Amino acid sequence: MEKITYDGMRNFIIENELTDSVAITLHPDNFDDLVMDYLDINGNQIERPFEILGIEILQDNTGGVTKSKINLMNVV
C-alpha cells in the first residue's frame, strides 16, 4: 500500500476480518497522512483513541515500522 488512506485502511480491516484484539501501528508519515484524510472525511473531527471500525490506529515511535507498511500488534 503506497499511500495509506482512510478508504484503504477500512478495506484492509474488512478484508482481513480484524477484531479489537489487534491494533494497527503505522510509520509516522503514514499515520499523519491517514489522520489528515480522516479529518477531511469527518469534518475535522477525530476521536481519541483514533479508531477505524473499532480498530485502534497508533503511530510507531520506535522506528520499527517501515514506511507504507501496516503493522498489526496484539492488544489482548
Score class of each variant (00 low, 15 high):
Asp33Ser: 06
Glu56Met: 05
Leu72Phe: 06
Ile41Ala: 10
Asp29Tyr: 10
Asp37Met: 14
Ser21Asp: 15
His27Thr: 12
Ile46Asp: 03
Arg48Ser: 15
Asp33Gly: 03
Asp20Pro: 06
Ser68Gln: 05
Ile13Cys: 07
Asp7Lys: 10
Asn30Trp: 09
Leu39His: 00
Val75Ser: 06
Glu17Tyr: 01
Arg10Met: 13
Asn74Ala: 08
Arg48Tyr: 11
Val76Phe: 02
Ile55Val: 13
Lys69Phe: 00
Ile24Asn: 13
Ile4Ala: 05
Asn42Val: 03
Ile46Tyr: 01
Lys67His: 06
Ile70Thr: 00
Lys3Pro: 00
His27Cys: 10
Val22Gln: 13
Glu47Ser: 14
Asn71Tyr: 02
Asp33Glu: 09
Ile24Tyr: 08
Met36Thr: 02
Tyr6Val: 10
Pro49Lys: 05
Asn71Lys: 02
Lys69His: 02
Met9Trp: 04
Lys69Asn: 04
Gly64Arg: 09
Ile4Gly: 07
Glu17Asn: 15
Asp7His: 01
Thr66Gln: 13
Asp37Ser: 14
Ile57Gly: 05
Gly64Trp: 02
Glu2Lys: 03
Asn61Lys: 01
Leu58Tyr: 02
Leu26Ser: 06
Ile41Phe: 09
Asp29Lys: 08
Val75Phe: 00
Asp7Gly: 10
Ile13Arg: 00
Asp29Ile: 06
Met36Gly: 07
Met36Cys: 08
Val65Cys: 13
Ile55Arg: 01
Ile55Met: 08
Ile24Ala: 13
Asp33Lys: 07
Asn42Arg: 12
Glu15Asp: 15
Lys3Cys: 06
Met9Leu: 15
Leu18Pro: 11
Gln45Val: 03
Ile70Asp: 11
Asp7Cys: 04
Ile46Asn: 05
Ile13Met: 07
Arg10Thr: 07
Ile70Gly: 08
Ile14Glu: 07
Gln59Leu: 08
Asn61Ile: 08
Lys67Thr: 00
Met9Arg: 10
Asp29Arg: 02
Asp33Phe: 03
Gly64Met: 11
Glu17Gln: 12
Thr5Ile: 04
Thr66Val: 05
Phe12Asn: 12
Thr5His: 02
Asn61Thr: 05
Asn44Thr: 03
Val22Phe: 14
Asp29Thr: 02
Leu58Trp: 01
Glu15Arg: 11
Asn11Phe: 12
Ile52Met: 10
Met1Cys: 07
Ile55Glu: 09
Val22His: 14
Asp29Ser: 12
Gln45Asp: 08
Asp40Gln: 14
Lys67Pro: 03
His27Tyr: 06
Ile14Tyr: 05
Asn61Gln: 00
Gly64Tyr: 02
Ile52Cys: 07
